[in-house]
Each structure stands twice: as structure tokens, then as C-alpha cells.
Amino acid sequence: MSETLLSVTNLDAAVEGFQVTYDVDFAVERGKAVGYVGRNGAGKTTTFRSVMGLADILGGSIRFKGTELTDLRPEQIPKHGIGYQPEDRKLFTGMTIDENFRMPIWTLGDERGIDDEDAAVEDVYDIFEELSERRQAQVENLSGGQAKMVSIGRALALKPDLLILDEPLEGLAPIIVERLKEYIEEINDRGIAVLIAESNVQHVPEMVDELYVVERGEIFDSGDPMEVSQKRDVQELMQGSGQE
């Protein structure tokens, strides 16, 4: 029987005083991959930031493994097993790839039961092998794709149960997109649940088990990824949102 990891119920969230999401409901089960697509400004990032405690929550509930996250301070959330790759990477510049990977372990490694820092970091390099040779490179010298990989890798360092990826494929060359998709699938194959936001519906259905479409802060449709993405109203909605 599947276990619900993340359960978002009736979420109303705001950015700088303006409500952005309305009664949002969705769930992520352990080990599953869930897509969360919508046009730019639809409320994807605000929803993800709400899960991480970084948005103003006006109402609703966000439960992760039975813990109500809205009661916690933002810094208390990752230790419950959620890794987060923000939309704009937000790497720690002036530091190396290795330092970026180790940063979450330095802050929460003990609480996550990681007693071998080097082994935990090697697990990340094991997925992103191409970063392994550049581990001492300063992150500001990386390509856009590599920077995305570092941002995802950093979110993986604490061995999360759920990995939240906010537009991981956005703005990347097609060949890099394909590589990143493989990496994300590999992460999911390792039993880590993945929640992926994208404004381009094209890449997501083949990667996920369930798809949510969000529009103007509300869930527009949800269900089987292939079925939902083929619906006419979804396709019309997503037109002009960056589809190639």
C-alpha cells in the first residue's frame, strides 16, 4: 500500500500581500514522481515555496509524513526529509561545487542521521558523474546546465524522501534537458519521490506518475500524465507558455 508523503490541502498562499494560490490540493506518494505544470505566474513557485515555509500562508494545510509543516519555521522543514531546488538555482557563489554539496550536511547532517559526510557527497557525485571531475570548480564558472545539476545535487545531499524541483529544465539546451531528465529519473528510481514544476508541459508527462495542471493559483486538472497532457483544454491553456 502506498504511503502519502506530502499532502497539501486547501492551500491559500500569498506573495507580498497578494493572494496567489486558491484552495490548492495535491499529494505526493512515497517514491512517486509528480508533475506540477502551469503557465508562468500560475502559482507553481509560490506553492513550492509554501511547502518550504518561504511563502505567506493564508490558510490550508501542508502535511509531510504526518507533520504539519505550516507550524514549523522554514529552517526546520528540510530536516524532515525535503530537498529543494529553487527556480533560479541560488547557488552559493564564491564556493566550489563540493562546498555547495556539503553545505546542507554541515547544517543538518547530524539531524538527518548522516554520519559519513564524504560518503553522502559521493552518493550525489554518483548521480551527477560529470560534476565529479570539477568538484573544486567555483560554481559561478559553471554552465547553466551544470549549475542546475549542482542545485539539484545540493538538494539531494541530505538524502531526502522528497525532492522538490522548481523548473529544473527551464532555459536549457535540448541536449542538456535530455541529460537532466535522465538524472531526475535516476533519482526517482532510487526511491526518492520527486515533485517537478515546469511551465513547459512537453517534457514532464513521460517523467512522472501523476500530473497536476495549475492555472491562476488553482488546480485546473490532474490525473494520468499522458491523458491530462493530451486534453484539448490543457493543451490550449499551455499554448504560449513556452511549448516548443
Partner: peptide, 18 residues
């Protein structure tokens, strides 16, 4: 280095448990 990370991006550092 945690302090430096906080200086560079306070919110991201928080999202990593700082």
C-alpha cells in the same frame, strides 16, 4: 562557510536548515 552562505542568500541557506 555557513555564515558566508547566509550572507550570499539568506533564504536559500534557510531552506537548507540554517
Amino acid at each position: 562557510r555557513i555564515i558566508r552562505a547566509t550572507a550570499i542568500d539568506r533564504e536559500m541557506a534557510t531552506a537548507l536548515g540554517v
